[in-house]
């Protein structure tokens, strides 16, 4: 039953994380990824056998006393998932930190805080195909426009003409 509870919890964390990740706004993206991390760690934890309260601290005498490995395993928590989770926690911390830094950098560059899809419509490099109407909605960001325009030069403004060019 504990396993069922864990599964339920992981499922719910996944659901909440997904909902957040799909929202607009980068803080929500990061928070959603954070929930994912927790969900995955718990899921990994659930792959081992759950043992209440006996940390895997085993010295020589305990081993002798227990007699067999199976007996030890019955008494102590499964150490392998713990090691795996530790690795996973640290790695995902590194990843999250990097993403946060990317967001920071983007904010410093563009002065706008849209989600990639929308920002791409403005800066329009990751996304040549996004609708251009959004550019109109952000007149305040005009002082960054020469930069944005530079990026725009790289890609096309007039899809129809590009089709022509493609045919050429």
């Amino acid at each position: 039953m504990t396993a069922l509870m864990l599964a339920l919890l992981v499922g719910l964390l996944f659901a909440c994380g997904t909902y957040l990740v799909l929202q607009r706004g980068q803080i929500k993206l990061v928070l959603g990824l954070g929930l994912f991390t927790h969900a995955i760690n718990l899921a990994l934890f659930g792959t081992g056998r759950l043992t209440r309260g006996a940390p895997p601290l085993v010295d020589g005498e305990t081993v002798k006393a227990a007699g067999s490995a199976a007996a030890l395993f019955a008494r102590y928590a499964d150490p392998l998932p713990q090691a795996l989770i530790l690795t996973a926690i640290v790695i995902s911390f590194g990843m999250t930190a990097f993403i946060v830094m990317l967001i920071f950098r983007r904010d410093a560059l563009t002065g706008s805080d849209l989600l990639p899809g929308e920002l791409a419509a403005v800066v329009n490099t990751a996304d040549p195909f996004a609708k251009f109407t959004l550019r109109m909605q952000l007149p305040e960001a005009a002082d960054d426009y020469d930069l944005l325009q530079y990026e725009l030069d790289e890609v096309y403004d007039y899809p129809e003409r590009e089709v022509e060019n493609a045919r050429e």
Partner: peptide, 25 residues
């Protein structure tokens, strides 16, 4: 949500062979 739930549950549906963990202990 279902995905997470199922993924955890699969561990308990079937276990082929015993864990290698006792060796570590």
């Amino acid at each position: 949500g279902f995905f997470g739930f199922a993924v955890v549950l699969i561990n308990h549906i079937s276990q082929v062979g015993e864990s290698i963990s006792p060796y570590f202990l």
